[in-house]
Nucleic acid binder design. Sequence first.
DNA 1: ATTCGGCACTTATACATACAAGTTCACCAG
DNA 2: CTGGTGAACTTGTATGTATAAGTGCCGAAT
Lengths: 258, 258
Amino acid sequence: MNLYDQPMDDVVNLPLHQRLSHEFRQRITEGIWAPGSQLPSEAELCREFGTSRGPVRQALAALRSEGAVIGGRGRPPMVRGQVQSQSFSTFMSFTEWAQTLGKVPGQHTLEVARRAASPAAAAQLMLDDGAQAVEVFRVRFLDGTPAMIERTTFIPDVGRLLFDFDTDSGSIFAYLKRHGADLSSARHTIDAVAATDRDAELLHQEPGTPLLRERRLTSTAGGHPVEYSDDRYLPSLTNFTIENNAQHRANLVRIHTA
Amino acid sequence: MNLYDQPMDDVVNLPLHQRLSHEFRQRITEGIWAPGSQLPSEAELCREFGTSRGPVRQALAALRSEGAVIGGRGRPPMVRGQVQSQSFSTFMSFTEWAQTLGKVPGQHTLEVARRAASPAAAAQLMLDDGAQAVEVFRVRFLDGTPAMIERTTFIPDVGRLLFDFDTDSGSIFAYLKRHGADLSSARHTIDAVAATDRDAELLHQEPGTPLLRERRLTSTAGGHPVEYSDDRYLPSLTNFTIENNAQHRANLVRIHTA
DNA sequence: ATTCGGCACTTATACATACAAGTTCACCAG
DNA sequence: CTGGTGAACTTGTATGTATAAGTGCCGAAT
């Protein structure tokens, strides 16, 4: 199972510093660089890989910002612990995520519809009131147990691709990517809601059970919204973690909702 | 109100790239660089500030990883929107956060006790079973309305400082920092729980109401745990957001809890 | 024995340079 | 008018160099 963006064979095509960062991450997960141990100095790494300090430092900076490596000026960098971060596609795709866990992802599609977008989705996707959009409503499973409810709205341009796709067959994210859709950034808003009667029924829970909700607005590289999703997780099966340190500005925000 | 780590007067002491990043962020929040507009090329910024490309690129990289700036090779960088990220201390301190919102933070201490740490806290803090720790139990307010319940456990070395502190007077984080405690990184785990009877009473809600829970393990620069906290937010008042893009590896992780 | 200074090593910061690779746009041929 | 070519400009990557600043250790002086 490969936790990283690129299969090993493709790694040679990546820029040097990404290749290094990949290699370093692998050494950590394989235990060659054990948690708590200090890793080689930048100079040694340069010698080993035959590069200048630039790429080595970029690679280390990537690990640092994930919290996998700590240590600073004068102090050799140390491994802080198991790397706890997922590539963009692993985080975006329920299917890919489940596979890295060694679980079997599943999905049951309740509805794929073209209709006027809900007010919340229309606002997020910057669509005119009453504008058409494509909505997908699925339950997602881990090893056969329901784990999440997914209500996703796509802008028409992207959504129309879905009518040629069996949404019970797997990852929408992967499918859209393959067909050239530009999904390259997302804003996640995390809160908690009580399960509606429908939610409860689908997840085999009592109505009112707390659910962990992730609302996601996915955009193109140019910043144009593409997809809006309201995903509700069973908190007993899933939660979210994030690392945060004084050097690197937190990319996690606590929001007050008036 | 200053959203940033350093007051303006101290900015001169920072490294150049941090000064630039500070300046850039300010230009964005002040609207000099409006959302959607493209900002000056790296070369222009170099000329303006009389530096080489290195620091400018570092500063832009910081903004990029926060999702404030997008754009890539060939394409001039563009402002994506209002900067949505908080400094480490703003995120860690409820008091500081409330102040940046223009709200009045409040707190009511229910208990400060030295006792054997709870099993969950002891495990996280790497304390022996039955080892002593200092626990603080507070309700936090925004403009007088209860917004969060805080159950925090400190290792004895740090916790003892709290017996000389009026925990009703304000920020424990700021107090500990002033007294030299090393709080420099944290791991946040976010999920949802049902309000217990006690929780409900303190937050003026019905028992069973969904609460947004943030469990936080704060550590020193060397990776030694210092503080463990179980904070429960009213989801109608608070939620969390995070940015995520294809270039920069997600520092947000979806976790499966077996 | 202890303390203090300084050396050797490390990382952090900064600059100059070169080239690769993508975008935009004007211009020209058809 | 259309479509393609290429120049000019942009950012990405990589190298080399120099200096500042923090850490840890050893040895000399006290």
